[in-house]
Simulated assay, not measured.
Amino acid sequence: MTVERDHNGDVLLDRATTPSLYMKDGTALALREFFMHEQGIWIDGESGALALLNHVPIDRRYLSIFMNGTMYGVHEPQPGEGYGSTPQHQVARRFFEAHPERKPWEDAKTGEAWEITYTTLVGPEVRKVAIRTDYNTWKTDVHDMDFDYAITSARRIWPEDAS
């Protein structure tokens, strides 16, 4: 398959054995943003920087920001702290304002069992039982996964809630 742009900037997908697919630039951009979102990548509308929420074993969320060819790491501030004045801190502020709530599975403890539902790039959502590991990843019957951003829903199944 070849991907080309015509003189208007529109996208042409050409396959030798099937009819070509032609997309206006806006459609191509929408598809790009869709697939980036599927991978957990957020695009800052103001600066164009890319942000990816990392799940490292710390007490607050950590963001990797790709901006002007450089990668920056920024923690979510503790309550009462503010954001720095650098461009990457302002991207982080906009990201965390757009994503204010932590999801329950982001606080899963090592050894807990959760039923998780997550998206894949090649098919429907998948539901599996997974165990949280020491490395803040999920161990399933098939593989280890370290992409909390793909999880769409989850519920802890062990230990059972005491309430």
Rank of each mutant, 00 (worst) to 15 (best):
I58Q: 11
D59R: 14
D59Q: 14
D59S: 12
D59N: 14
R60N: 11
R61C: 09
R61P: 04
Y62R: 12
Y62K: 12
Y62F: 13
L63G: 03
L63T: 09
S64H: 06
S64R: 01
S64K: 01
S64W: 01
I65Q: 03
I65D: 00
I65M: 06
F66V: 05
M67Y: 08
G69Q: 06
T70G: 00
T70I: 07
T70Y: 07
M71P: 05
Y72H: 08
Y72G: 03
Y72D: 03
G73V: 01
V74T: 08
V74K: 02
H75Y: 15
E76M: 13
E76Y: 07
E76P: 08
P77L: 06
P77W: 04
P79E: 05
G80I: 06
G80S: 03
E81P: 05
G82L: 02
G82H: 07
Y83K: 06
G84T: 07
S85G: 13
S85E: 15
S85M: 12
P87V: 04
P87E: 03
Q88I: 05
H89Q: 09
H89T: 05
H89N: 13
Q90K: 04
V91A: 05
A92H: 00
R93E: 05
R94N: 02
F95N: 04
F96S: 01
F96D: 00
F96L: 01
E97A: 10
E97S: 06
E97N: 07
A98Y: 02
A98E: 03
A98K: 03
P100V: 11
P100Q: 11
P100E: 10
P100H: 10
E101T: 12
E101P: 00
E101M: 11
E101R: 14
E101N: 12
R102V: 13
R102M: 15
P104N: 05
P104W: 10
P104E: 07
P104A: 11
P104C: 06
W105A: 05
E106I: 10
D107L: 15
K109V: 11
K109Q: 15
K109F: 09
K109H: 12
T110D: 07
E112Q: 15
E112N: 12
A113H: 15
A113Y: 14
A113C: 13
A113P: 00
W114D: 04
W114N: 08
E115K: 06
I116P: 02
I116K: 03
T117C: 02
T117N: 06
T117S: 01
T117W: 05
Y118C: 03
T120P: 08
T120W: 10
L121M: 15
L121E: 13
L121K: 14
V122A: 15
V122R: 15
V122Y: 15
G123K: 09
P124E: 14
E125Y: 07
V126R: 10
V126T: 09
V126L: 01
V126H: 00
R127W: 00
R127K: 04
K128W: 07
K128T: 08
V129E: 10
V129P: 00
A130Y: 02
A130S: 04
I131A: 09
I131T: 12
R132D: 04
R132S: 09
T133M: 00
T133S: 11
D134Y: 07
D134V: 03
Y135N: 14
Y135K: 13
Y135V: 06
Y135M: 04
